[in-house]
Design a protein around this nucleic acid. Sequence first.
RNA 1: GGGCCCAUACCCCAAUUGGUAGAGGGAGAGGUCUUAAACACCUUUCAGUCCGGGUUCGAGUCCCGGUGGGCCUACCA
Length: 871
Amino acid sequence: MPYDPSSSESRWQQAWSDAGSFTATRDSRPKYYVLEMFPYPSGRIHMGHVRNYTMGDVVARFKRAQGFSVLHPMGWDAFGMPAENAAMEQGGHPRDWTYANIATMREQLKPLGLSIDWSREFATCDDAYVHQQQAMFLDMLEAGLITRKSAQVNWDPVDMTVLANEQVIDGKGWRSGATVERRELTQWFFRISDYSDELLSALDGLTGWPDKVRLMQANWIGKSRGLQFRFQTVDAPEGFEAIEVYTTRPDTLMGASFVALSPDHPLVRDLAAADPKVAAFVEDCRKIGTTEEAIETAPKLGFDTGLTVKHPLDEGWQLPIWIANFVLMDYGTGAIFGSPAHDERDHEFATKYGLPIRATFGERGMSLEQADALVAKVPYVPLKSEIVTYVRGFSGQAEQTGEAAVDAAIAHAEAHGYGEGVTKFRLRDWGISRQRYWGCPIPVLHCEKCGTVPEAKENLPVLLPQDVTFDVPGNPLDRHPTWRQAVCPSCGGAALRETDTMDTFVDSSWYYARFTSPHAATPTDRADADYWMNVDQYIGGIEHAILHLLYSRFFARAMVKTGHLPESAKEPFDALFTQGMVTHEIYMTRDERGRPVYHLPEDVYRLHLKGNEVAVLKREGFDDLSDEEAIEYAEAFAGEIEIIPSAKMSKSKKNVVDPVNIVQSFGADTARWFMLSDSPPERDVEWTAVGAIGANRFLARVWHLASLDIQEAEDPDLTRAAHRAIADVTKAIEGFAFNKAVAKIYELANAVGKSKAGGEARRAVLRIMAQLMGPMVPHLAEDVWAMAGGQGLLVDAPWPKADPALLEDDTVVLPIQINGKRRAEISVAKDMPKDQIEAMVLADETVRRFLEGAAPKKLIVVPGRIVNVVA
RNA sequence: GGGCCCAUACCCCAAUUGGUAGAGGGAGAGGUCUUAAACACCUUUCAGUCCGGGUUCGAGUCCCGGUGGGCCUACCA
């Protein structure tokens, strides 16, 4: 009977389902919660999902076998713009599109044989989830965690909607092509910035997270210590007698050459109202979008207001006030002083507009002239920890580090009363208002009498109306005939509903908590949350390293504050693993006009031909060719396709392989095995057709090995190999080194293949192999388990234990190095004392020949490892 | 511009964390089986660890300086 995953895989999946093997239960076992980032229901699963969920499944099945009560759920991040875009493009309703996609993807996911508790499945667009999220919103509003304030947004005047930064391309709306405006809108915010310090300092405790992610979060939160102070203005309009600035380099105050204001600074607005030239300049600045590329390529623009300020340390010294496009209103105070000698941007600006460049410090030991010469062409920006010489210092030592100088300057300002030391954060409040239909409605009302009023909890959920259309731009909620009309819960009068919906990051900020009691009539059930939280292992892509994880950390704290999570769950993810991408080669030809045309891997015949990598298009009739004919064919068309090195799978480059096809032709276990082989999980893995065939071939070989009928014989070496494998595979899985675990299983399979062991001795080893393979290729493992006489289902078998007595050999081979080069080796008992080894080494013929009778200068014996003789 | 990661055989990757560079897979070559092929099995080729210094009895591993690739982030004052 050959290996036939198509029949056996669904059979085992049915068996697990019938046995309820993966239903998570609260019981006496220790708990383990493993979670992979839930998918967006885009329509089809892709290889990235397969990799992500396979890794999680390995952990889940491994922990389950080790005796943990495992929670391993799955759900859908179901709100968001693609559903609305689909409705606009193809008609239909976002809800129908979303739920149809979920149904499709669920059916694609299930054949992978993941050990998921499907009874806990939910989508964030489910009425129940919307309900509980709204209930929490009200709790958080009451607890002071939410605020409403005015903020700038990217506004598309044609589509009449707010755009996210990534939807603004070259200053134009991605859909309409209209020039994007910046607009002020009143929006809802989570007060995450109140938690800046807490979210930053708590990173130290996240020892189960990659350093990289912690660092990225720290940079994002962006704590800085600096000086905030005021410049007295000269002849400025009323109300602007002083300009507040913030700097992290107050030590460069004597190098100040100008003050620069953001185009959005209140003083600039005041000036623009009176002076059309200022207004025109501000308008120019606005045209440059807020995108990264736009900012990167934008030239520094400045406008001299003609106004001046007095230098705080020298009343007679006046600095000009400029408006500069590179000054941001939402960081610091929206105003800076320019210190061109020690800042790249300021230097570029000063050079362009002919403003003075005066050094405040130079390299250690430099004179004032030398320092000024140093900064004339390029700014001097050493690390703050470096010692420099202050040539225009005003506080602290002449020779000191930047850090010390900053501290001294702050102290000086505070002592003389012209400024104070301030800690600032880059992290801003989290704006969650979206002028969109397909999201969770914000449950508040606007009442003429009472103002903004929270909806009463008993009126929840506030559900989206179904009778909407997407044929006109704008938010369908705004133009719905009746949906907005509601009763004010405070005064009983007429009120209008808020039509903004919540950012979808809100949905994904607490789904992990909802999984602990997905059907509860409250956001969480505290007994369940107390039992299951935290997530012991979270797995997902690095692209979520900042926003999703930071928002979730904040949200968990907010849930603790509102009583929905225990205090111990304020850091919800104990351990985080960020997996690499799945990549594939890109196959490209060009059309008659030289434009690139990409081809799907399934349409390409790929082989090594006389040392060259060749890819050719499969034309009609290709599938009927014999191997020789196919090679001839490839030779005939060689070079027609350019092979571009592997890159992340993307539809536009057509370098995608559909997991559904792979599962159909090879089985889920092959896809899973491939994903775990070779590449370390944190690194990218390249999908190749030959690799998939290779993985499948190995699984067939294991099947074959298990089905052989071998005459009874003992083989203690094989038993040893099996126990060695238990120890190695266990360690590898625990360390997320699945590629190493795979290699150890290959080794064991090779040993089984070579061994003459038969009967129960062989079956025992096969059962161990099945157990070790279980987390990775669970279906084949069940087959092997059954063939080798395993009792019951393999998923219910406890993880095997290695017998320590079988792990170590009694004798070890010690290599002998002479002057660092390996020259000989001796075989000694494992626990032989050092002096005996030394005696043996000195007696060794090769060693004696090298030493030529002399005593060695040094003899280093590392027990169990190596001996080095220094002659 | 800033930060992080990576570089070992033709390719993907191991190397007990400073102790014999090769565990494993793929590809290539040859063979057994076969009418032939597939499957299976056997045999085999291929590096001294990107480059240059340093520390050490000993460096793929640690340190310094380059080169090449990748990821993230960015007018943050």
